[in-house]
Computed example of a mutant assay.
Amino acid sequence: MSLLHPLRRLSDIVNQAAIVTCVVCVLVMLGISFTAFVYKLATGSTLSWTYSLARLFLPWIGFLSMTISLRYGEHVAMTLLVRSLPRALLTLSAAACLAVVGLFGALLLWYGWDYFLGANQVYMVSDQIQVPAKFTAIVVPVSGAIILLHLVQGFDLLEHFIDDDSAIDELIEGESGHAEERP
């Protein structure tokens, strides 16, 4: 257990870094699009490279947001069906779900690394802007590694074990606590 706590903290730190990276990618995409818009307004002509450059950030946003949603238990789950199971089967199904998630993360890491190593093309955004394909390819094994790291959170990744009554009580207490603090 002594090793599990630092790994869980590392998982949380990596998750925060993934959130910041996604926000930065979205802001860069918006900046590029805004630049194209202002240029079009000012000159009447378009910049040919803006769309191609902006879409290079989409794989980063997609893959990293997948890891973020996994960390918060927001992935696809059949919660209603699973919660109706007896406790022993619930635990078994949750363990099987984590095993499948782990397999998916391992496959992303394994095949993503080969994909990254083989990405030798260069995206010709414009004559002056050339982006190596490795820029977008590296996010595949990185997201696989993050998924595997998040598995140290265990059953906390799954909403199957959330007790609805205690969650509702926590929300009510949180709201009433804030209401009492207000003048």
Rank of each mutant, 00 (worst) to 15 (best):
L117M: 07
C25V: 08
D169C: 05
D163T: 06
S69A: 09
A36H: 13
A54C: 11
I19N: 04
G118H: 02
S65W: 00
L10G: 07
D164G: 01
L108D: 00
K40F: 14
E159S: 15
F104T: 00
I172S: 03
D127Q: 10
W113G: 03
G112F: 00
Q128E: 02
I129C: 00
V152Y: 14
V125D: 01
D156R: 11
T46Y: 05
N120E: 02
A88R: 08
A119I: 12
W110F: 05
T21S: 09
I129H: 00
S33Q: 12
E173T: 05
L158R: 06
C97N: 14
T67Q: 07
L80A: 12
I146Q: 09
I162G: 02
F116I: 03
M66F: 06
Q16K: 01
P132M: 02
M29E: 08
L4D: 02
V28W: 04
T35M: 15
K40E: 11
I147V: 08
E175K: 09
I146H: 08
S52G: 12
T67Y: 03
S93P: 13
G112A: 03
W113R: 02
F116T: 10
P183F: 14
L27D: 03
L47E: 10
H75Q: 14
Q16C: 04
M78T: 03
V131K: 13
F34A: 02
D12Q: 09
Y51G: 09
V26E: 04
R71F: 05
S84R: 09
L4C: 01
V23G: 02
L107E: 03
A133Y: 15
P183C: 13
I162D: 10
S93R: 12
L151D: 05
A167R: 02
S143A: 11
L89D: 12
L109H: 00
Y123V: 06
L80F: 14
L171Q: 07
V82P: 01
C25W: 00
I61F: 01
F37M: 14
C22N: 01
A99C: 08
D156H: 15
C22E: 00
G154S: 11
I168P: 00
S48M: 06
A94H: 04
I168S: 00
W60V: 07
K40W: 13
H5M: 10
Q153M: 12
G144W: 12
V101G: 09
D114C: 01
V125H: 02
A54W: 14
L89Y: 13
H150E: 11
Y51N: 06
L107A: 11
V82R: 07
Q130P: 00
G144D: 08
L4I: 10
M66L: 08
E74D: 06
M124F: 14
L30H: 09
L171S: 03
V125Y: 04
A167T: 07
F34K: 09
L103I: 08
A77Q: 12
L56E: 07
R182Q: 15
L70F: 15
I129V: 05
L149G: 01
N15D: 13
A179V: 15
K40M: 15
T67K: 05
W110Q: 05
P141E: 11
L10I: 14
Y39T: 15
L149Q: 08
L90F: 04
I168K: 07
A42N: 10
V142G: 06
A96S: 06
E181G: 13
Y123F: 07
F104G: 04
P183Q: 14
V82T: 01
D163E: 06
